[in-house]
């Protein structure tokens, strides 16, 4: 898990290069055969150019099983104080002893999860922050393949002809709808785990042979 340490001599941009070179599964691959990494970021704000990543949580899903052994949660050193955003994620400046540099965290992510399909609930935000961070740190844009449980849920509900109330697509409402256990919200790993459960339920309620391409279509 700390393999990035051994490879410290490689130029930083190579990390992104290697990540981009590992082929993400093709669209024809069955979702059941596809490795997923469910990720969640806690942020100081919504603007990827100005705001910062406060914490990162992820957990992989392989063969439709959430593998808790590989679950990770890191607090990230922020160049500025967390300030007002603490009201959402509950993390205050004093909590950041033991935090990591974003470089370390992203290096581990890119090296361990090349070839994975990334998953998030409302993924555009997470994707944008990850892209900006990679560009800044490694000088090169990483190409992530993302699917979005929020959009999949929207697709499902549309298909069932269900009229949605406001907020119906928020993660904890989705969990209730799928009769899944609720976790504490705005904790990066707890949210990533909840999102992973939601993904499993969505996959199980789809056609057994659903492909990655289908999921990507539903995620748009």
């Amino acid at each position: 898990m700390l393999s990035w340490l051994a490879n410290r001599t490689t130029p930083l941009s190579h990390i992104v290069q290697e990540f981009n070179q590992s082929a993400a599964p093709g669209g024809a691959v069955r979702a059941a055969d596809c490795p997923f990494l469910v990720i969640d970021l806690e942020l100081t704000g919504l603007n990827a150019k100005q705001d910062h990543i406060v914490s990162v949580g992820w957990v992989p899903v392989r063969q439709y099983e959430v593998v808790l052994n590989d679950a990770r949660h890191y607090l990230v050193h922020s160049p500025v104080g967390v300030g007002q955003s603490a009201i959402y994620h509950g993390l205050h400046d004093k909590d950041f002893t033991g935090a990591r540099d974003l470089t370390e965290v992203l290096t581990e992510l890119l090296q361990a999860y090349a070839g994975y399909v990334f998953v998030a609930h409302h993924c555009q935000l997470d994707l944008r922050f990850l892209e900006v961070a990679c560009q800044r740190i490694f000088g090169k844009a990483a190409k992530f393949s993302f699917i979005d449980t929020l959009n999949i849920e929207l697709y499902r509900l549309h298909k069932q002809g269900i009229v949605m109330k406001q907020d119906a697509l928020r993660l904890h409402h989705c969990l209730t709808r799928h009769k899944l256990p609720q976790s504490g919200q705005h904790h990066a790993l707890a949210d990533a785990y909840s999102c992973a459960l939601l993904l499993l339920s969505q996959l199980k309620h789809s056609h057994p042979d659903i492909t990655l391409a289908d999921l990507q279509l539903q995620s748009r």
């Binding site: 099983e65 959430v66 808790l68 052994n69 992973a196 459960l197 499993l200 199980k204 309620h205």
Partner: peptide, 11 residues
């Protein structure tokens, strides 16, 4: 103990 667990959704 929890870290040795995998979670599966059964239908």
């Amino acid at each position: 103990l929890a870290s040795n667990i995998s979670v599966y959704y059964c239908q």
